[in-house]
Design a protein around this nucleic acid. Structure first.
Length: 417
DNA sequence: TCTGGGGTCCTAGGACCC
DNA sequence: TCTGGGGTCCTAGGACCC
């Protein structure tokens, strides 16, 4: 039997521990650089603040309701998290720290689950000031459902035990698939479209069809809902497989020099983090992408990876590899493999106004121009030749609108050899 | 004007081999 | 018109989580 222990609005609760006056009033916590809302008290939810709402858009609303928002303080949250997890270790030898504010623990069969659950939630709240909810069940996915039900039904005791098959069936019948752990936006849409709206309906759907149409993950999730354990508890933290340092820029026009400066800084930080974790990198990647909130703009993204000759965590090696990535991104275009179309980006100084070229069905051997000639004509580094061919159409951003013209300039280059 | 950041896993398709 | 079959490995893209 497992229990999921989940802190209520963790970041908000942490702030409230150190300022009890915040109790009962709308409180939120903002992301890095105060970009958007990442944690909300029930009171701030009630006035209409959504998860991920950009701060600048809700400022007036916050003022009107005398809501308080905080910049995030990850050191504080990490600290509080450690305290909560330490307490959990006293209840079980098998604790999986699933995230900063959640843990799965294995419950001994000799426990009375209701007593233990109650004790966990009261002990943590008493010792740390953080309110938690507890969901008990035979699989992790059902634990998640149980904890969610505590929230949805505002259960006073702060725990819910989902072990009785009849009870499980009844609860799942009205449990929306979008609330299931492991089912996100895309899968929800797909399930809705074939008439599956609740966990109960999902459980009745043939397993082989689930596997075929949605993949192994949804099958595992479904089996877990039916009581078959597919996800085990990982009490030993696995070493990280990747580390990332990424930031959004405050303004859309990013010039090479600015990018270069940022990449040096990011790569330096990552190298330091690697050394701190006593780890070595075998590859370094960099990526860029345009602002996807500007829906009318032509979008562009690109990335490049350098494999290191020898694994390393030295600032020198990591930074120089990252710069190689950046330079390559700026020099080359982006190959859009899936559609069989070559998409070539000429990275403008204003990223949101990059020029893109597309091509179809032109083989390399139909091209009479050499790479040098192309470079001379269109600017060095503007395009990349690949198996599929080169561009014949030009897409351009003109005064914020997307337009495309066939460009005759290509004709000379495309004489059949 | 201002819209987070850091992770994991799975899969389809391509390249390559015999 | 027909165009082997089976296997591995790698990677980009997609989906999900907190």
């Amino acid at each position: 039997m497992f229990a999921l222990v989940d802190c209520d609005q963790f970041f908000v609760s942490c702030e409230r521990v150190f300022d009890p006056k915040l109790k009962g009033i709308p409180v939120g916590v903002l992301s890095n650089n105060d970009g958007c809302v990442v944690a909300r008290s029930p009171e701030i939810k009630a006035i209409g603040v959504k998860m991920g709402d950009p701060y600048f858009k809700i400022k007036a609303l916050l003022k009107k309701h005398k809501a308080v928002v905080f910049s995030s303080n990850y050191e504080l949250y990490g600290n509080m998290s450690a305290r909560v997890m330490n307490i959990l270790q006293t209840f079980s030898n098998d604790v999986e720290i699933y995230s900063v504010d959640e843990a799965f623990i294995r419950l001994s069969k000799y426990f009375k689950y209701s007593d233990t659950s109650k004790e966990i939630s009261t002990t943590i709240e008493k010792w740390t000031g953080i309110p938690v909810k507890v969901g008990v069940a035979e699989t992790k996915t059902l634990c998640k459902v149980a904890a969610e039900l505590v929230k949805m039904r505002q259960i006073k005791n702060k725990y819910y035990i989902l072990t009785d098959p009849v009870q499980i069936e009844e609860d799942l019948r009205s449990f929306d698939v979008s609330e299931i752990w492991g089912i996100g936006r895309k899968t929800t849409e797909k399930l809705y479209s074939i008439g599956i709206r609740t966990a109960g309906e999902l459980c009745k759907y043939p397993e082989d069809v689930i596997k075929k149409r949605f993949g192994i993950n949804l099958l595992r999730t479904t089996l877990e809902l039916k009581g078959t354990q597919c996800f085990s508890i990982e009490t030993v933290p696995q070493p990280k497989q990747s580390m990332r340092f990424s930031r959004s820029f405050g303004k859309p026009a990013i010039e090479y020099n600015e990018m270069h400066e940022s990449v040096v800084y990011f790569a330096t930080s990552i190298a330091a983090n690697l050394r701190k974790a006593n780890m070595l990198a075998s590859a370094v990647s960099a990526f860029i992408t345009t602002n996807y909130f500007n829906k009318d703009d032509l979008q562009y993204s690109n990335s490049f990876t350098v494999s290191l000759k020898e694994q390393s965590n030295s600032t020198n090696d990591i930074v120089s590899a990252a710069i190689t990535c950046l330079d390559t991104i700026f020099r080359e275009g982006y190959r859009y493999k899936k559609s069989g179309v070559l998409l070539i980006g000429l990275v403008d100084q204003k990223m949101s106004q990059g020029n893109l070229f597309t091509s179809q069905n032109i083989k390399n051997d139909q091209i009479s121009a050499t790479m040098d000639e192309i470079n001379r004509k269109f600017g060095r580094g503007a395009i990349k030749l690949a198996g599929e061919g080169i561009a014949t159409q030009e897409w351009k951003m003109q005064r914020g609108k997307l337009s495309h013209n066939y460009t005759n300039d290509w004709d000379d280059l495309l004489k059949v050899k």
